Simulated assay, not measured.
Amino acid sequence: MNNKIIVYEHCWFQGLSREYTSDVSNLVVENFNDCVSSVKVIGNPWVAYEHTNFDGSFQVFEEGEYGAVDSNDVISSLKLVWEDLTNPQITLYEHSNYQGNQLVLRNETNLCHGYFNDVASSHKVQRGAWILYEHGNKTGYRMLARFSQDVPDYGHFNFHDKLSYAVPLKPGKTGISAVVLWDKKEEHVQSVVIDSISSVNRSSQERTFTTEMGRDYETSVTESFNFSNSTQISWGTSFGINVEMVKAQSNFSLSNTFTVEWGKSNTRTEKKSVRISLPNTVSPKTKLTVNVVRKQVSVKVPVKLIITTGSQHKEEYGEYRCQSGESITTEYDEEKI
Rank of each mutant, 00 (worst) to 15 (best):
V301E: 02
N101C: 07
D70M: 12
N53W: 08
G100I: 08
M245H: 12
V28E: 14
D84H: 11
N137E: 06
T281I: 12
V274W: 11
T210H: 12
N2Q: 13
I42E: 12
G263E: 07
H160D: 06
R127F: 07
S199K: 11
Y49P: 00
S196H: 09
S283V: 03
Q126R: 10
D153V: 04
S230E: 15
W46N: 01
E223Q: 12
I6W: 10
Q312Y: 03
E319W: 06
S96K: 13
E212D: 15
R321L: 05
L85D: 08
C322P: 01
W12G: 07
R215F: 09
S311G: 01
N107L: 10
S298K: 14
S273N: 10
E316H: 06
V60S: 07
S238H: 12
P302D: 00
E62T: 15
K162R: 13
V74E: 09
T259D: 04
I337W: 08
W262I: 07
Y8E: 00
T174P: 04
K295H: 05
S57H: 02
E206I: 09
Y66L: 05
F239H: 03
M213Y: 12
K170G: 08
N242H: 08
T21G: 07
S71Y: 08
V28W: 12
Y98R: 14
S96C: 11
A129L: 00
W82A: 12
Y98P: 05
S324L: 01
E244T: 04
S76E: 03
T237F: 05
M1V: 02
V119Q: 04
D34N: 15
E316F: 00
V290R: 02
S273T: 13
N280R: 14
H95Q: 11
S17M: 14
T281C: 13
T329K: 15
E212Q: 15
S203R: 09
T329I: 15
P152Y: 01
D118V: 11
Q102V: 02
E270Q: 09
E30Q: 13
L144N: 06
T21N: 10
S204P: 03
S17G: 04
K271F: 04
E334R: 11
S17E: 13
E316S: 02
H123V: 05
F32R: 02
E334S: 11
N251Q: 10
I233T: 02
L163T: 02
Y332P: 06
N107A: 15
V301C: 05
S71D: 08
D216H: 15
K138A: 13
S250W: 05
W12D: 14
D183G: 07
A48F: 12
G263P: 05
S191E: 13
K124S: 11
L92P: 04
N87H: 09
R268Q: 12
F252S: 02
F209Q: 07
H313S: 13
T210D: 10
G64N: 10
V167D: 08
E63N: 06
W262Y: 10
Q102T: 09
E63D: 03
V29G: 02
V39Y: 02
N26S: 09
S177P: 08
S277D: 14
S199Q: 14
L144C: 08
N3R: 08
C11A: 11
V24L: 04
Y154P: 03
I131T: 06
L111P: 00
N107D: 15
N251H: 11
I194T: 06
N3W: 09
N291Q: 15
E187S: 15
K247V: 04
Y133N: 04
V274Q: 14
F209R: 07
